Amino acid sequence: MSSRRSRTTLASVAASAGVSVATVSKVLNDHPQVAPGTRSLVQSMLREHGYVPRASRRESAKAAPAVEIWANEWCTYSTEIIAGAIAAGAESDVAAVVTTIEHAATGDASWARDLAAAGRRAVITLADGPSPSQLAALSRARLPVVVVDPLNPPRPPAASVGATNFAGGLSATRHLLELGHQRIAYLGGPATTATNQARMHGYRAAMEAADLPVPTEYVRTADFCYPHGVKAGAALLDLRPAPTAIFAACDYIALGAIETARARGLRIPEDLSVVGFDDTQLAAMTSPQLTTVRQPLRAMGALALRIALRLAGGEEIASHHMELATELVIRDSTQAA
C-alpha cells in the first residue's frame, strides 16, 4: 500500500470553496474579474489544502531545481557538511541554497508552499531536525526532508544521515586505554540526545571491557560547545584523583578542555591526554594537533543530497537512517600515561 499523500487538485479546492475550477484558476493567476469575497474564500481554501501550484513551463525552464539547506550556525563543522552537499548538487546539476532562516512554528505554513513554488525539491537540515509543525508543513508541500548528523534521528518520512557514533566512542577510549590510561573522563553533549548517548555508551563499553570503574563525576554532559569544555574541564581537573585523559564528544569540547588545562599550567599531552570527535579543520590547526574521531562530514553532506533527490523523485530508499564509518585519527594530543 502506498503511503504517499494524495495530491491536492484544483477540483478539490474548488469543491471546498463552492466555486468552479475556472474561478480557482483565476485566483491563482491574480485575474481581476474575481469578487473580493470570492477571492478571499478561495485563497483560504488553497492554504487549508496546502495547494502548491505547478510552476509554469517557462518558469521551470529558467530556474534550475534546488535543494534548501538549513544551517542554524556557521562553523567549521557545518561548512564541511554544506561543502559536501554543494559538490554533490553540482554533479547532479542541482543548486544548493543555504539559509539560516528559522521558520516560525505557526499555523501559517505558506513558507513551505513558497519553497516548493520557488523550485525547491527537498530540504536538508544539520543536527537539529525540523520541528513537528515544520515537518508537517513540508510534508503538505511534498518537500522531503533529510537531517545530517541528527541529535535524534527523525521519524519517517524524514530521512537522516549519521555516523557510527558508538564505534567512534569505543575506538577513542580504547586508544587511551592502550596508552595505559585508567582514569579516563567523558565530556559530552546534551544528555538525552541519541548522538551523545551513542558516543558515551562506546566510552562506557570500552571502560567496562577493561574492568575499570567510571566514577559518576567523570561523566559530564551539557552542550556540544567550547564553553562546556572549559567549564566541565575545570571541574574534572579539580577532582582528586583527577583524570589523566579526557574523551570529548566533539572537537570544540576537546579544545575547551585543553585551554582550561593550559590555564592551570598543565601540558598536553604530557600531563593530560585529550581525544575529540568530528575531525573538523580546527583539529589539525591547534597546537598540539588534536587526536580525534573523524566523521566523514563532506561525504555525509553529499549522501544527504543524493537521498533528498531520490525522495523528491518518488524513489524508495533502503533505510530512513544511514550511517557512515568513523575513523580514529591519532595526532599529538595523546601519549602514554
Score class of each variant (00 low, 15 high):
S139R: 15
L324I: 04
E270Q: 15
R47C: 05
K26D: 00
E59S: 15
A299G: 08
T76C: 05
A85T: 06
S3H: 10
T291C: 03
A117I: 06
T280S: 12
V97Y: 13
L126F: 11
H201G: 00
T100G: 14
F166M: 09
P269G: 07
V123K: 10
A66P: 00
A95Y: 03
L309D: 02
T99H: 11
G129P: 13
A17R: 05
F247P: 00
A185K: 01
A141G: 13
D128M: 11
A112W: 02
I124W: 09
A205R: 11
V19N: 06
A242G: 01
R39K: 15
L305I: 08
C75T: 14
Y51F: 15
Q43A: 08
Y218Q: 02
S3W: 10
T260K: 01
A35I: 07
V13R: 02
A261G: 02
G18M: 08
A194V: 15
F166Q: 05
S139A: 14
L179G: 08
Q33M: 12
V146Q: 10
G89M: 04
I124M: 14
A112V: 11
A191H: 14
G168N: 07
D223S: 14
I86L: 10
F224E: 04
L309C: 04
T244S: 15
A15G: 06
I69S: 06
I124T: 00
I317F: 05
M207F: 01
H320M: 13
R58W: 10
L176W: 02
A22Q: 14
A210M: 01
T192H: 15
G188D: 03
L10C: 06
S319P: 04
H175L: 08
S6A: 12
E217L: 04
L237M: 00
A17L: 03
R155M: 09
I82A: 02
A242V: 05
P243W: 00
M322I: 13
A261V: 00
P36L: 11
G265E: 09
G18V: 10
W74A: 11
L311A: 05
S40R: 15
A116C: 07
A232Q: 09
R7F: 09
A163N: 13
T334F: 09
R4S: 12
E102C: 05
A234F: 05
A249M: 04
K26M: 12
R267Q: 12
T106C: 07
H201S: 13
W70Y: 15
D332W: 07
L10T: 07
T334R: 03
L272R: 00
Y226F: 15
A172F: 04
L46G: 06
A127M: 13
G202T: 05
L290D: 05
T125N: 12
L297E: 01
R331V: 02
E315C: 09
L177D: 07
I317M: 06
A88R: 02
A118K: 13
R298E: 15
P144G: 09
